[in-house]
Design a protein around this nucleic acid. Structure first.
Lengths: 188, 188
DNA sequence: GACTAAACGGAGACAGTCCCCGCTTTCCTC
DNA sequence: GAGGAAAGCGGGGACTGTCTCCGTTTAGTC
C-alpha cells in the first residue's frame, strides 16, 4: 500500500468549499453549470478546481455521492416502516422527487445505471442496485410485484418516470400520478 | 396579406442542403451537434445558417417537422389495421424506437410536449396530441385503456419509456419490454 | 527562520455560438 | 444581354465556456 499523507490544510479547505458550491450550482442550474463559475463562487482559480476534479463528471460525482448513499439508506428505513409493496413505491417516489429537485443528481444517477466508467460511479451504482434489490425481492416474496421484474429495470423506469414528470408544468405533482400508472398499468 | 415573393434560387438551395445535413448530424450526434460544423458540411458560411435558422431550436424543428408529421400520420394507419389497444401500443413502440434512432428528435418532441414557444413546435405538438387523442379515445371506447388517462400523459410516458430504454446497453430491445411493463402494470 | 514539496491561480489555447457588415449573386427590366 | 437594386452570402470577430501550463505562493518540517 502506498502511504497516503493527509491533504494540506488549504487544499482540504478548498476541496470542501468546491464541493459545497458545486452541489448548490448543479442543483440549481443542472449538470451543465459553468465550472469556472463554480470555481469563482468558491473563491478559487479554475486551475484548483480542475486539479481536484479532473472533469465535470468527477465533480458531479463527488458532490452527490453522499446524497446517493442517503437515498439508498432510505430504502431500508422504508422497508422497516411499511409493508413491502408500499415501501417500494414510496422509495421510488422519493427517488424521483429527489432527482427532480437536484437537477444534477439525475444526470449522475443516469450514468450510474448505464456505465461503470469511474470508481465513484460504480460505488453509487452498487448501493442503488443493492437498495433496489432488497425492496424488489421483499415485494416479490410478498407477492405484490411481478416476479419477472429486475431491480435495475426499476431504477431505469424510475428515471423514465422522472423524465415524464419533468415534461409537465407542475412537475412535483406528476411523479405520484405516473408512478401509479406504472404500478397499476394502463389497461382498463 | 403581404405579398410573399419566392425565395431566390441560391437561398432555396442552401436552405435545403442545410436541412438535409442538419437532420443527419442531429440524428448521429444528438441535439448538440456543432452548428458551425453543420454549416461547413453543407458548404455554406455560418452566417447563412444563422440567417435561415436563428438558433439551434429553429433548425432542429425545421429538420424534423416532416418526420413528426409522418409519426402522427402513422397513428391513423395503425388505427385502421389493428384493434384499438394494439394500435395504441404499436404506435407508442414506433414512437419510442424512432426517437431513439434519431437522437435530436427526442429533444424536439420533449419541448413540443412542454412549451409552445415557437410556431413550428406548436404545430408539431398539436399533430402529436391529435394523433394520441384519436388512439386514446378509440382504446377507451373499446374498454382496453384506463378511462382516466389523458392523451398528453401518454406522450410524456412514451418519452419516459424512451429515456428508460436508453439507459440500457442494447437500447432497441428494451422499448417493448418497458412498454409492456407500463401497460400491464408492475403488480403481480 | 529556511527549505521543499504541495498547492494555488490566472493567462491563454482551443472550441462553440451567434452577429455584423462589406461583398457577391440573382433576377427583373429594358 | 446589360445594368442595377435587393436578396443573400460568408468569414471575421466578440463572447462564453473548458481545460492546461507554469511561475508564484504557502503549509508543514527541521
Amino acid at each position: 500500500m502506498t502511504q497516503v499523507r493527509p491533504m494540506r490544510a488549504d487544499a482540504r479547505r478548498n476541496y470542501e468549499r468546491l464541493l459545497a458550491v458545486a452541489a448548490e450550482a448543479f442543483a440549481e442550474q443542472g449538470e451543465n453549470a459553468s465550472l469556472d463559475d463554480i470555481a469563482k463562487r468558491a473563491g478559487v482559480g479554475s486551475g484548483t478546481l480542475y486539479r481536484h476534479f479532473p472533469n465535470r463528471q468527477a465533480l458531479l460525482e463527488a458532490a452527490y455521492v453522499d446524497r446517493i448513499g442517503a437515498i439508498a439508506a432510505r430504502a431500508d428505513e422504508l422497508a422497516a416502516e411499511l409493508p413491502p409493496g408500499e415501501a417500494l413505491v414510496e422509495w421510488l417516489n422519493e427517488l424521483c422527487v429527489g432527482t427532480i429537485k437536484a437537477r444534477g443528481l439525475k444526470a449522475l444517477l443516469g450514468s450510474a445505471v448505464t456505465d461503470g466508467s469511474s470508481a465513484a460511479v460504480t460505488v453509487c451504482a452498487a448501493s442503488m442496485r443493492g437498495a433496489s434489490t432488497r425492496l424488489v425481492e421483499a415485494a416479490q416474496r410478498a407477492g405484490v410485484l411481478r416476479a419477472d421484474v429486475e431491480p435495475v429495470e426499476l431504477l431505469r423506469l424510475a428515471h423514465g418516470v422522472t423524465t415524464a414528470s419533468e415534461l409537465a408544468d407542475d412537475q412535483g405533482t406528476h411523479v405520484r400520478r405516473y408512478l401509479t400508472l406504472l404500478t397499476e398499468g394502463l389497461r382498463a
